[in-house]
Amino acid sequence: MHVICFIKQVMDPETPTASFKIDSATNAVAPVQGVAPVVNGFDENAVEAALRLKEDHDVTITVISLGKNLVLDVIKKPLSMGADELILLQDDAFEDGDAYSIGYALAMAVKKVGDFDLIICGRQASDTDRGQVALAVAENLGLPAITMAKRVEVKDGKVVVERVRTDGSEIVEAPLPALVTVSNELGEPRYPTLRGIMQAGRKSPTVWTAADIGADPAKLGANGRVVSLSKLFIPEVEGECELIEGENDADAGRKLALKLREAKLI
């Protein structure tokens, strides 16, 4: 069975809020000194879901990532977790896209990869928080798609997914080939083993340009987008916190309760 995962390099979402700044000239987040980018957390969950399929199936995992300024040590993490191959889509023509143009580029890359049974990727990227690209790929390739998986199994030519709902979950099925997006409820991605890291170190990613995947330049990047970002800003938080003090922490706790009663909150 051949599984394809998409991953995206993002700024570390654990970056302290205080150092989060926007460069208004470029309408982008200013890089934070000393904070390395990471693989989008939901995409790591997706790689984990693919690796778990190896327990019952003979699985080959190909990872595809589109982006620029990729840090090789970061983007190779799925290889060190146990994925087999890494393909990087790198071309200025891919830049400044939206879900339409990025979804088209990824779909063209999948076509070039050839036969596959399942595409697994994260429910959304932790930078744009859109959750759209995967479904754009599914539409491009005519695949059935299931979102928000916490469990992914393959049996009898079908993918069987337990999908997260706010009030529980639901079991959803689709015939293969299919696309599934994964949520963090799937569980923590495994840590790379030393052996995995050494094996990943010996592998070089394949790099494809727009021409390599036979993409129509009119459908790529800014040319192919339907939605564009006009402004990025940090919303202002109003209000002022009244800090309750006491002789010691326990006393402050008691005074807080009295304060809440005074304000008729309890």
Binding site: M11, F20, S126, D127, D129, S228, L229, S230, L232, F233
Partner: peptide, 11 residues
């Protein structure tokens, strides 16, 4: 966007 750290205006 960015987990609520920022907001984007899209057109």
């Amino acid at each position: 966007v960015y987990g609520g750290n920022a907001q984007g205006i899209y057109e």
